[in-house]
Amino acid sequence: MKKNEEFYVSYIEDSIGKHTKRALKRFAISSIVVIAASALVFSFSQKPFNNSTFELTSATKITGTFHENPYPMLRVEVAKKTFKNILLLGFGKSSANPFLDKLQNEVPDLNGKTLSIEGNLIYYNGKTLIQITDDEKVTLVNTKKVKGPEKETVSKMTLQGEIIDPKCYFGVMKPGKGKIHRSCAVRCISGGIPPVLATTDNNNISEYYLLTDLKGHRISDAILPFIGKPSEIKGIVEKMEDWYVMRINPQEIKVISETSNIY
């Protein structure tokens, strides 16, 4: 140890000698420089966030045709004969269904009926979703049954991408994908939020596929081990207006070692 004639005792006034003072000043300044430099390095090094939106503090009322095929959606006419299928989600990491139960008890089959829903919009890259936080804000506008969107088979495909939970990916969280977000996505999909395969091609154009089992039923638990990992998925792709639906056998999902190209 360096020889130090000075001796600091906290309860003795002015026991800090001038050399000690100088050493302390040096340490404090160095620490502050390290703190400031680290703040700059860590903040500047973050990957860019996407411009997805979650309107947490404002509610929007939308009216359209309800369909559950297999995931609950509201088909809204956004321009003449142009429809957008808005994915319905519940509060937190849950499906929209608990918020539809009350109305479904009164009107057993809501499919094709016109509903009005007030909730928080989530949107990104052409897709819109809505979070329902109160079952009182789901109301029946018209009991007349209207035809829902048709599904057209596109082809059998093998796609590479990442299974994400659409609620976080399209706006609630940033980033709503990848390893950091994996646990949250597992909770969301386990809680009933529809799984979506997100892909990005070489031209950086993304496409999204709602995943169902081969019979077109919902899937959840069977795909939990693959969420948030770059994967290769085989299935039959169908087009449902502005969404693709992909029928898959979860046992055929392959985790691939490549870096996910969706981020």
Partner: peptide, 28 residues
Amino acid sequence: IIVLSMLLYIILFAVVTLVFNSETSIET
């Protein structure tokens, strides 16, 4: 010194992020 250094870090981090990567969410 501890409190001011912590504030310096948080303010610098927040300002740089909000100015140069403004699409962040407040939770992140």
